[in-house]
Write a protein that binds this DNA or RNA. Structure first.
Lengths: 245, 245
DNA sequence: TATGTCCATATGTCATGACAAACGCTTGAC
DNA sequence: GTCAAGCGTTTGTCATGACATATGGACATA
């Protein structure tokens, strides 16, 4: 596959397998390695880079998990055909849009402390009536309303009053506050717009909306965020890549 | 964490790491290991089971990828809080429903060879106008129409005429035919029902529908299936678990 | 009391070596 | 000519050993 000469920095804190994976990914995205093309076998690659085979395997595994490479025993490893789309990750809509080069604008409709209803309490592992942050926002792209977002957070996780949420996304701020989200559970569905939603999103009552509910957990398994979102389906859709292992 | 005594069968063709992962998963689902509880460290576990640490790590990694366990360096590995839902996998709706204990019924509306339109040709990596299988079905659960499914397949992949598609699912048949699907790309959205869809699904025209488009690739990177599906949102939703790695 | 340092602990990374199993091609037998 | 057996290639699995690094508590210090 000769491809570009990969460089390794053994003094870097970035793990070697990750350095290799990054450079492979770039080569694939740039087309330096063509779709369908087979890459060298693991043993040869490892030797050429001065790595052990387990490390080389780990690097390849990263891209296999991303759906960019496919392994076949006895045959080799090759680049997957078709355009590579980024899979659904533990990011927010704000991150998604920023990555796509768009500039989202966010309008905070309401923020404050409320009593958790049954749904919110269950999802956040609290008792009903407990004090939680409630955050309601409207997101625009190109002056068009794209999503109506209602999030709930335990009060001991973060102080929402101290944040300017119209500038940065909620997730970006949580990360900056040292909150590490490790697992999230999502439910994607659809329903007709309520009167309020229709008004906010510039649609008619009953117009189809794409909905998403998400509960995010930190690395201690504690629920840190629960959100109910509604999207205009003509402006947004969820894309994901599934990999069978 | 003492937990149940895991058993290993070294003569089995099932990999050791997988045997361990399976038994761990069962213990977690059954509650033998409580949510939030820390499991023993990798070295001790490996020693107790007579395994090497890499193998033990590989077993744990399987469950970390599923979002059931969380690792913390310097601390340990613990069971995630909250109910575990199965993540979106490379399965079909038929599989999903069967796994949930329901008995889906399928009605084949039309099956035959057609010329690929632009969309189909692009997704299946064919030229426009090429001969492809077209399969249109309606899926019921408890006598209620749940989904309208329109799938396209390259003619050289399988012979749909030879199959009874009302009994087994399309994916089950593809697997039985030796077709291995490794990667799939999905796009989930929403829109209003067309007149035809409304009639088939027992809804009104313009009623919100949940839509999914999927292109599946085999292990050679060849597109083997493209489908456009529409679901009744009151009966179906997509659930997925995201894991940050 | 508050803060910084040290240390035990557990996971993260990496190397080396070995055998197993699947795939695809070639070769040989009938 | 067709089919089966054999073989090389490549990934899959597993063992052993070592050092790095983040975490959280104990302890010493200001």
């Amino acid at each position: 596959m000769p491809g570009p000469a990969f460089t390794l920095d053994r003094s870097s804190p970035v793990p070697l397998y990750f350095q290799v994976a990054e450079q492979f990914e770039r080569a694939i995205l740039e087309g330096t390695i063509a779709p369908g093309e087979r890459i060298d076998n693991e043993v040869a690659l490892a030797q050429r880079l001065g790595l052990s085979r387990p490390t080389m395997r780990q690097a390849i595994q990263v891209l296999v998990d991303k759906g960019m490479l496919v392994r076949k025993r006895g045959v080799g490893t090759q680049v997957v055909h078709g355009k590579i789309r980024r899979s659904v990750e533990l990011t927010s809509l704000h991150d998604d849009l920023s990555a796509a080069g768009q500039k989202p604008r966010t309008e905070v409709i309401a923020v404050g402390r409320v009593e958790a209803d049954e749904d919110v309490a269950r999802e956040l592992q609290l008792t009903k009536g407990a004090d939680v942050w409630s955050l309601e926002r409207l997101r625009f792209v190109d002056r068009q309303p794209l999503a109506h977002m209602h999030n709930y957070l335990p009060v001991d996780v973060v102080d929402l009053d101290a944040i300017d949420l119209s500038e940065t996304g909620l997730y970006a701020h949580l990360r900056a506050s040292g909150i590490v989200m490790r697992v999230a559970r999502q439910r994607i569905g659809a329903r007709g717009a309520s009167v309020d939603e229709a008004r906010l999103l510039g649609e008619r009552k009953g117009a189809p909306l794409l909905t998403m509910q998400r509960t995010a957990y930190d690395n201690a398994g504690r629920a840190v965020e629960y959100g109910r979102h509604a999207y205009r389906p003509d402006l947004y859709a969820f894309e994901l890549t599934l990999v069978d292992r």
